[in-house]
Amino acid sequence: MAVATGGGYLERPRPSGLADVIDVILDKGLVIDAYVRVSLIGIEILTIDARIVIASVDTYLRFAEAVNRLDIAQSDDSQGLPELMESMTEGGSKSKTKGALEGAKEKLGIGDDDEDEDTGDKDDGEKEERRTRRRSSRSSKSDDE
C-alpha cells in the first residue's frame, strides 16, 4: 500500500473519515434492480437528499450574507450583522430543511473529527458573533444610522 517517503503533508492518502466519503457512499455504487430489492435503510437517508433541495436559493442567500460579513468586518459598522443572522435563521421551510439535514447528520455521527465540511454554519455564525462582540466592546460607541 501507500508508503510515504517523506512523511510530510499529503505525502500519502489519508485514511478516509466517514465525513470525507459520505457523498460517494450515499450517491454512488451499484444499484440492484428495484424489484429484487427489499428496502433502502431508514428514512434518514431521504432526509439527506434534502441537501439537493436547499442548494439554489439558499446558497445564493448564504453567499450574499458571507460577502456582507466581509464588508462589515472591513468597516467599523457592526450594525447589519444581527439582522443578517436573523434573516438567515428565519425564512421558513428552507431553514427547516437545513435543520432536518443537520439532525440527520448528527444521527449518522459524522463530522466528529477535523472536518471542515460538517462543522457547518453554526460555528461560522458563533465565530462571527464573538468577533463582533469584541469589536463593539472595543469601540464602545457605535453610532446608529
Binding site: 457512499i25 450515499l26 454512488k28 455504487g29 451499484l30 444499484v31 440492484i32 429484487v36 430489492r37 427489499v38 428496502s39 433502502l40 435503510i41 431508514g42 437517508i45
Partner: peptide, 16 residues
Amino acid sequence: VLPVRFGTVLESETVL
C-alpha cells in the same frame, strides 16, 4: 471490490 449502493437489502440469498 465493486461497491454496492448503501442500504441495499435483498429478500434472501436465493434472490441474491
